[in-house]
Simulated scan of single mutants.
Amino acid sequence: MRKALLIAGLIMLASGTAEAAKCGNNAQGFPKWLAAFKREAVASGISSRTVEAALGNMTYNRKVIRLDRNQKSFKLSFEQFLARRAPPSTIAMGKRRMQQHARVLDRVERKYGVPKEVIVSIWGLESGFGGFMGNIPIFSSLSALAYDCRRSAFFTNELMSALRIADRGQMRIADMKGAWAGEIGQTQFLASSYERYAVDFDGDGRPNLIRSTPDVFASTANFLRQHGWSKGGDWSPGSRNYGVLRDWNRAEVYRKTIAHFATQLRR
């Protein structure tokens, strides 16, 4: 009996240790976690060559964790956020970009039912109309965030998605750079969204959300349509389409800014 209890206790202790090794809040356990994750990725069907190319010499990215802990912009009031992210100069730039890309935006709107004003407002807010997409290698960002205990499950899924994108040859690992949370391209798709909603609208054989504006516009519209966007519907706060914008960004101040920006573009 005593021996059985001892064995049971050791099993529970081992189980607890294994569970704790799944994530961590400092650099100490990162190498062990990474080795286990790489084995899991290969077991899921991703080639060992891709896994090693993406993660082979990876180290813990402390900067990414600091940025994750310090998202102050979403604590601003709507007026403060609007002044910072969508001032009159940015809205004027949006109107020029909308005219510049009018033909392809009209095609996208006809196919997906999402107004060009909404697409361009998201484009402007996410990357300054493609001007700054981020330059952090996303495998560095995503591995740090997947290891971090705060949102480990969420970012582990994103890391797996990013590896699958690379393994299929949809993007080169060297090109997979973005913002600190691993977002990719001109409207900052997370890897799982890239897998599900990215569209090859320019017909070159694969979606490219970094360099192809037709692909960027169509993929953004496809995301919103797949999340329930109602063609011809309003996007003001309280509307059904405003609710769909929550699937784009859960921060109320961000959704309200998208809606305001799009309304200004329509005037």
Score class of each variant (00 low, 15 high):
T187P: 14
N70E: 08
A181R: 02
A179T: 10
G185M: 10
A27N: 05
G24V: 12
K111P: 02
T59M: 14
R2S: 15
F155L: 06
A144Y: 07
T220M: 15
D167Q: 01
T257A: 01
G124S: 02
S47W: 10
W229I: 04
R266W: 11
V108D: 06
G131P: 02
R164D: 04
T257W: 10
G205C: 05
L125Q: 07
Q188V: 06
G24M: 03
A191Q: 07
A174K: 10
L34N: 02
R69D: 14
K22V: 14
F81Y: 13
R97V: 14
K111I: 08
R240Y: 05
K75T: 09
T187K: 15
Y194L: 00
E183S: 14
R168I: 00
P237S: 03
G232A: 09
G243R: 03
K22G: 12
G232H: 09
R240E: 09
N25I: 12
M98T: 13
A86I: 03
D215G: 00
Q186Y: 07
L245Y: 11
E19S: 12
K231L: 11
S141K: 00
A146W: 09
D167E: 01
A181M: 09
V42G: 01
G9F: 05
P87F: 00
T187S: 08
G243T: 01
F74K: 15
A14V: 14
T156G: 08
A27S: 11
G131H: 04
A191M: 02
F129C: 05
F74H: 09
L67K: 05
L209N: 01
S47A: 02
N26T: 13
I65R: 02
D175T: 13
R97I: 14
A144V: 06
S143L: 10
A218N: 04
F78I: 05
G9W: 02
A174R: 14
P237N: 03
G203D: 02
Y147I: 15
N25Y: 11
L190V: 06
A41C: 00
F81S: 06
E126M: 10
A162E: 00
G232F: 09
